[in-house]
Nucleic acid binder design. Sequence first.
DNA 1: TATGAATGAGTGTTCATTCAT
DNA 2: AATGAATGAACACTCATTCAT
Lengths: 224, 224, 224, 224
Amino acid sequence: MGTGLGLKKKSGAVATKVKPKSRDAEATKARILAAAKREFAKNGLAGARVDRIADKAKANKRMIYHYFGNKEKLFQTVVEAAYVDIRTAEQKLDLEHLPPRDALEKLVRFTWDYYLKNPEFITLVNSENLHRARHLEKSEVIKVVSRRFVGMVGGLLDRGVADRVFRSDIDPVQLNITIAALGYYYLTNRFTGSILFERDFMAPEALEERLRFNMETIMRLVCK
Amino acid sequence: MGTGLGLKKKSGAVATKVKPKSRDAEATKARILAAAKREFAKNGLAGARVDRIADKAKANKRMIYHYFGNKEKLFQTVVEAAYVDIRTAEQKLDLEHLPPRDALEKLVRFTWDYYLKNPEFITLVNSENLHRARHLEKSEVIKVVSRRFVGMVGGLLDRGVADRVFRSDIDPVQLNITIAALGYYYLTNRFTGSILFERDFMAPEALEERLRFNMETIMRLVCK
Amino acid sequence: MGTGLGLKKKSGAVATKVKPKSRDAEATKARILAAAKREFAKNGLAGARVDRIADKAKANKRMIYHYFGNKEKLFQTVVEAAYVDIRTAEQKLDLEHLPPRDALEKLVRFTWDYYLKNPEFITLVNSENLHRARHLEKSEVIKVVSRRFVGMVGGLLDRGVADRVFRSDIDPVQLNITIAALGYYYLTNRFTGSILFERDFMAPEALEERLRFNMETIMRLVCK
Amino acid sequence: MGTGLGLKKKSGAVATKVKPKSRDAEATKARILAAAKREFAKNGLAGARVDRIADKAKANKRMIYHYFGNKEKLFQTVVEAAYVDIRTAEQKLDLEHLPPRDALEKLVRFTWDYYLKNPEFITLVNSENLHRARHLEKSEVIKVVSRRFVGMVGGLLDRGVADRVFRSDIDPVQLNITIAALGYYYLTNRFTGSILFERDFMAPEALEERLRFNMETIMRLVCK
DNA sequence: TATGAATGAGTGTTCATTCAT
DNA sequence: AATGAATGAACACTCATTCAT
């Protein structure tokens, strides 16, 4: 079946040659995947509609079943891809070549920005947890990229400790969780939050303030 | 229609008099509400089934429509009640009579414990945010209890500042969000988290460690 | 779930009282069952359409699923009922009170007539065998009524042997099969037969002639 | 479009020359036909899947449409071929050169064996009758081979009558039907039969016993 | 107050068939 | 001759909701 994650390979080259357009399998798969991501993010697994995905993807509903098996497997592919995407982006931060404090700040800021620019990521993760990670369980790639990520933060912490700028007893996993939590919670609960706290969570100043607050929280936690 | 929130009133008295259990309207409403809470928490709004709620509540499906109008209004009642519940529990903490640091610690611990013992609360909030807080919007009670809550934390911060144990520039709303975020994120994402980080998020030691970590994060943030 | 076979019990009494008509569950079940029998007989399990069954039964499609679970279970109920019906009719022949030869003739004639008047029976049995009797397997009633039937023919043979009119070495099961086969084959294959042998298999004289032929075949086989 | 029946012609010769197997039109047609026979026999016309036929035939689905027009025409070809096959085999029995009794026994045995070794034949015939012989109707070949077959049995009967070993009033068509019926019914209904009569219809001894019983039935019917 | 019966509009999925190469 | 891509109509089945008592 394939994970549907490695879509980019040769279709690009071919496309530049003859432009197969509507009969390009890889392109169709990619369109379906993109549409599915939006639909699942917006409505959850149960609330998503296969018809709407097909419409948005400008594909035939039948193609979804041809390429992805069924709604649930499509969801699984989407979730897996979402995780691979964020982990890939994190790897590109190139934190190794920055001083530890700068690197940590960069990571906090990146995490915040990523959630902000990819709101589907958060809802997809929420959906997957509603389903007790039943789909992610089946993924093998996920463990590979996760280990690399934890290793990256672990290395960063080690360097900070060596440089005597970070505390020595910080668990990289707990730190990862905390960095994610501070941004994730604010953004995923921005709707109820705006009501409960009677302020617009998405106003530019509010966003800036929150990032500042998160940054301070992390720095006070990690730095000596 | 009623909010369904004031269930406790007199139904006890009436029940002891004559009415058989199966004809006790308040009891039926309460059973439906409890069943609905579980069902919505487990499956989300779209994934929840009215039939299952009726079954679990040992009530006739028709009763749901009679008492709550429709599925969505039932969801709204459930979400509203969930918020009222946590805010009510928080008020009982009686933080005013504790030294600021102790009060803050108590609040952090309480928040963590509450999420842990009421996992439906978290999923309900996630669901409500998936629906852009469309249901909570209509609630009036929610604003009242929220204000009281923010006021409580604000007062606590003020006392800490006056005692010179807390920093003076902490926004009570940001602090609230942060306290919630640290526990909420860990628990709502415990399924994907357990896979990504290859450890059991719900193991007793893991829970303890996380609470310790959260406590330290908050204390380092707030205390001088 | 129930077999749906014992439909007649109380609904009759109630019906004579108030005529609940369209809200009589038993009546609805019976209508669905009758419509399903026709549809399955005409088109087989795969070719049958749930929509058509609902239409013919003047029932809502949803009711089919409510009462019978799904298409396959409905088919199972239909097949089971078909067998119970023929076995019940056979019991009413009262062969015990006839001289053996007369009783045997009556059984041959009955079998022929039953197939002729209940053409759905044959196609249902064919369908069930196409599916390797997967549905009948689950039925318990079937074994009971079948044993009674074999016993009846066995008793008849015994009486004939005692009277010295029947051969003594006839296996009642083989005889049953043979009686059935002679009529069944002719009728189930009447369409291809009419083409292959270029005669109208269903013309009254053709039917009479075939019954005569079958009768003679059996009598020559069984009688001394 | 062609009947698809005359496959053997020259394809062998062509294949030995140059053409690779995967480009041998006749071979592809033959593979499709064989696969279709199995699929239709197993699942009936409605239950058969064009995809499965293509898979089994290791052919492209498109080829089925290219060579046979559509699913129904493919079915028609299969059914026609099945009849031609059995009639062809019967002609090879060479009954004319055997004494009438021996010839009749040989025919009974052959019929039984053919059904036993070609179980698809029976299910195909059942399917075709479910569809009221709609497909066979269109075939011309069928009538030719059928006439020859009836003539063969007629001739056999005549010889038996002339030899004074057979009764003189047997209709060859009725005899044909009866010979077929005795084996056909037992085998087509072997699944329900095994349940109803609580014995394994396909056990070697059971098969032998049935053949013996059938033989006796026919002989007692036909012989003086 | 309570309930079993009934319904219409979906909802995921399948299928035979055609298109483009 | 052969193939992978694509499609629309249909299909089994589900669901929230209303009716009748």
